[in-house]
Nucleic acid binder design. Structure first.
Length: 658
RNA sequence: GCCGCUGUGGCUUAGCUUGGUAAAGCGGCUGAUUCGUAAUCAGCAGAUCAUGGGUUCGAAUCCCAUCAGCGGCUCCA
């Protein structure tokens, strides 16, 4: 078998400098590099048949609905957004590349086949159709050309002469001046996701495994919503997410138009909430033996190990050019921690070895349409812990511990029982560990969604997530743990066992709370749901930016209020000293969801007792400052405390929003 | 990424259909008021009507492009 029987070229063009005479069309230098993805296959035959139109389908005559060609060079083509600047140049470049290949394999037949999978930076459909048509026209002078229609779902069969595609796949980048070869960069994981076939089941605490469609959801409405969301992934929504309005009105966070979308600004109150949640998660994993580390936010795109991992992760990343080198922004702490692990000397006595980082930030360039408020961001804060275990049995034991830890974390955060569980694993893992999985379901004591794969497409063999279901029936993953069986090898991480042998650890990935911003989103959505049902929306007291608001009736009571504030150590107290009526200030405190509101006038100054309104119970009690302080301190016992993040006097506060 | 909707002082909106250079409430400032549990009174300042083009004697209003937010769709050529 000879190589050139199957010529497979994945080419990425960069536009060459235009002759002087053409430059004027583009208003001067506009040489940002034009690309088009091209996959050329010399085939015995290629045949296709259109199945269904997509929304971007071109209008075609019936003669184009199916077609075939024997002994042809098939060109799979993706026109990219960069090509829009100069479609004609793109056509010329592509034509010459196809000519070169066709001459090489000595064929005079060319099949042009639009193929979107080749790129994630596609051009507008109209441009693509235009380029394809012109390409057909250009090539038809010298070749017999056919073109498959654009924008249709098509079935196709191709017989490639010789070698398997995967082994010959390569990318050629034609630079502005010189040509250089590059490895294919289409993420392996993105491809895997396409191939992965999922089997959906419900597993009950009794150990019953039922196909998802036969399960009786009547007593599990949230699980039903979750399953619908996972399987169908579509849902009609009639309003904007409630938390978006709340995050602004409560002066927590807002969009930042000066940045990329999905990069938020956090006001003092939101920043305080974030820090408290971050403190809490770090404290909690520290109690479970994790040590905190810090790693860089950007990594070399061409680092051999990282590159392979990058390919394995189904996320799109930000990239940064700096001084001729290319970097990508991390989407988790895996990179930094695994590289650190690799250089460490680790004994079996050190296992399980846990490292955690509060990644501020992790970056994922999610699609525009996916970004909403605090639910899905492009820059987010995520606790990321990795645990090195001696082997799979050890990993499974740790997995169970961390599963329980995650449940406790969500309960402490204020999301007790507000989530649905998904456990996902390969068939092999299931047959070997059936009991273990049933046990996990018993621990949460409610039915969970099971996703089963026939073979392993990802780096993990099992993972679970706790998913929050919001008022619009959207599911978002919070806590998650995965057992990774691939990266110890990839990163060359090893430990020394009792016998002095070097072994590969099994690695757990864990985010105990999920993204911190997403926790805030879930808390706001939950509060909104409660208020819709006629309840009082609240935040957990330990997370409330102000825990106690003092309202002096007149100016002469301010001094006394300051004394009260002073008494309440380790409680976030502020004083509304603005020149407004008591009624108005009460109302303002209510709109801020402040858990304890105290009015201070002559009566309080004389008696020494305070009139305290408890928001959660909508009732008033008489207490001394010490009693109130003790009440709040015991309520937040065990949770982190930080001092107030704004001036104590409201008259001194600037307005951030509204 | 694609489609649709939206974009008016710091905030929320009116005006846009039927072009004639902006209106209100909140917030801010000033003054009066020192007040007892869900909005005290008066005055003042504050807007190149998202950005860039176009049509027109004249554009917040009509057209095009861009950006952003929201909703939907989508990894599909």
């Amino acid at each position: 078998m000879y190589l050139n029987h199957c010529l497979l070229t994945l080419a990425r063009y960069s536009q060459r400098p235009l002759p002087e005479s053409q430059i004027y069309k583009h208003g001067g230098q506009s040489n940002t590099g034009h690309n088009m993805q091209l996959l050329l296959i010399h085939s015995d035959y290629i045949e296709y048949e259109t199945k269904k139109r997509t929304p971007v389908a071109e209008e075609i005559e019936s003669s184009m609905k199916s077609g075939c060609m024997e002994e042809a060079l098939t060109a799979f083509i993706a026109v990219e957004s960069y090509d829009e600047e100069d479609p004609d140049g793109t056509v010329q470049n592509a034509a010459s590349e196809i000519r070169k290949a066709a001459d090489q394999v000595k064929t005079n037949r060319v099949m042009l086949y639009p193929y979107a999978h080749l790129s994630s930076e596609l051009s507008k459909p109209a441009v693509a159709v235009d380029v394809l048509k012109k390409l057909e026209e250009t090539l038809s002078f010298d070749y017999e050309v056919k073109r498959a229609p654009f924008g249709w779902y098509k079935a196709f069969k191709i017989s490639c002469k010789g070698h398997p595609l995967s082994e010959l796949s390569r990318t050629i980048r034609i630079g502005k001046k010189e040509e250089k070869e590059e490895k294919e960069v289409v993420s392996e994981a993105l491809k895997s996701e396409e191939r992965a076939i999922s089997y959906w089941h419900i597993l009950t605490p009794d150990g019953e495994l039922l196909p998802a469609e036969t399960f009786d959801f009547s007593e599990h409405t949230d699980l039903k919503k979750f399953v619908d969301y996972e399987i169908s992934k579509s849902r009609a929504v009639d309003r904007i997410p409630p938390h978006v309005e709340l995050m602004r009105r409560l002066e927590l966070a807002d969009y930042e138009p000066g940045s990329d979308s999905g990069n938020m600004r956090f006001y003092p109150k939101g920043t305080l909430m974030k820090r408290l949640l971050e403190d809490y998660v770090i404290d909690t994993v520290a109690k479970h033996g994790a040590v905190e580390v810090e790693t860089p936010v950007m990594y070399d795109m061409n680092h051999p190990t990282l590159k392979k991992y990058l390919d394995r992760f189904p996320a799109r990343q930000y990239s940064i050019e700096s001084d001729k080198r290319s970097f990508f922004l991390r989407f988790a702490a895996c990179f930094g921690q695994f590289l650190m692990n690799r250089d460490m000397t680790i004994s079996h006595r050190n296992l399980p070895l846990k490292m955690v980082e509060m990644t501020r930030y992790s970056f994922r360039r999610e699609q525009h349409g996916e970004l909403v408020g605090l639910r899905r961001l492009r820059a987010f804060t995520m606790p990321d812990m990795h645990t090195l275990c001696s082997d799979m049995d050890h990993a499974i034991a740790e997995f169970k511990d961390q599963y329980a830890m995650c449940m406790a974390v969500l309960a402490d955060i204020g999301l007790d029982n507000d989530y649905e569980v998904a456990i996902r694993f390969t068939r092999d893992f299931y047959t070997e560990n059936q009991e273990f999985i049933t046990e996990l379901v018993k621990i949460v004591d409610k039915p969970v969604l099971i996703e089963l794969w026939d073979s392993r497409f990802f780096y993990f063999v099992i993972k679970f997530e706790f998913n929050y279901i919001d008022a619009m029936n959207k599911a978002s993953a919070l806590s998650t743990v995965q057992i990774d069986v691939e990266n110890a090898e990839r990163y060359d991480i090893e430990y020394t066992d009792k016998n002095g042998d070097k072994l590969r650890p099994t690695i757990l990935h864990c985010s105990p709370s999920g993204a911190i911003e997403r926790c805030i989103y879930a808390l706001l959505e939950k509060a909104h749901l409660i208020s819709e049902e006629g309840g009082v929306p609240t935040l957990p007291t330990w997370l409330s930016p102000t825990q106690v608001r003092l309202i002096p009736v007149a100016d002469r009571h301010i001094e006394y209020a300051e004394g009260v504030a002073h008494t309440m150590r380790d409680v976030r107290v502020d004083i509304d000293d603005r020149d407004e009526t008591v009624g108005k200030r009460i109302r303002a405190a209510g709109r801020e969801w402040i858990p304890y509101v105290v009015v201070i006038g002559n009566k309080e100054v004389e008696s020494g007792a305070l009139s305290v309104t408890i928001r959660a119970e909508s009732e008033k009690v008489e207490e001394t400052a010490h009693q109130l302080r003790d009440r709040v301190v015991s309520e937040i016992a065990g949770m982190p405390y930080r001092q107030i993040n704004l001036p104590v006097m409201l008259s001194r506060r600037a307005v951030f929003f509204g």
